[in-house]
Design a protein around this nucleic acid. Structure first.
Lengths: 127, 127
DNA sequence: ACACTGTTTTGATAAACGTCAAATCAGCGA
DNA sequence: TCGCTGATTTGACGTTTATCAAAACAGTGT
């Protein structure tokens, strides 16, 4: 529809990103398969460094950040940052691409939106 | 100058979570303190058994569930269930009370709503 | 070809985690 | 009081995790 200037807000409000597959955790009991699929996603963000990495990447101008933009914000070493980025990537929360010397990461907003919807107190405020 | 506030914060609708403390992770970089406070909460739900426990409790009729209502749904032993309940409780996600022989657990919706708001790009303007 | 920078992988280590069996605690009823 | 059931704690075990140093990989420029 309208690809107006609407900021990031749109991406989960519509049913498109959330694929409408999952009622909030508080509305309907999660079955085993859902729980085993979701737990690794929450585990991926259950670390302060990864939480900040994800936030830094998602907030970075242009929607993507080079590794060199990130390492300076942490006390841990480069390999550790690289490890955490890999964890986030394997969970599907971020993705990356090499461009010349640098590797750029960006967030996958759909996954984040899905997690939010699962935790959310109500799903759609329609009516 | 800095009184311009994003009108995003009051998601929780529960009245209890009126912290108004945290913009979504994708809007503003999490600082170290926020990340270190949030990570243990996500860690608490980053386990399939705990995820289902939380969901079962939150969905249970009356808004609370006895431990004996829960154990049957899992393959793990009673002590393990008890351990996971303790983790959820120490994270503040659930609370409990003993009534006679049985111990009843209920979910704390404010904490869940806060996590949802942190992850969520959307602005569910419920009233 | 070489050196240099940015990033990831490997290997090792200490801490944290999930699970169970056994023991313990908390109420209830005979 | 004693025994019974529901629930938690303790102690142990194997697995996973976060971290680092060192090595390796990927591009760029000389």
């Amino acid at each position: 529809m309208s690809k107006q200037v609407l900021p990031i807000v749109d991406l989960a409000g519509t049913g498109q990103a959330g694929q409408a597959c999952c009622a909030p955790l508080v509305c309907e009991p999660l079955n085993v398969a859902e729980a085993e699929e979701l737990a690794p996603l929450f585990k991926a963000i259950a670390d302060p460094v990864r939480l900040r990495l994800l936030s830094l990447i998602a907030c970075h101008e242009g929607g993507e950040a080079c590794v060199c933009d990130l390492t300076g914000a942490f006390e841990v070493t480069g390999p550790t940052i690289s490890h955490h980025l890999k964890v986030l990537r394997q969970a599907g929360l971020i993705d990356c691409e090499r461009r010349g010397t640098w590797v750029y990461y960006w967030a996958n907003p759909g996954v984040l939106a899905r997690l939010s919807a699962i935790l959310g107190p109500r799903v759609t405020a329609t009516t």
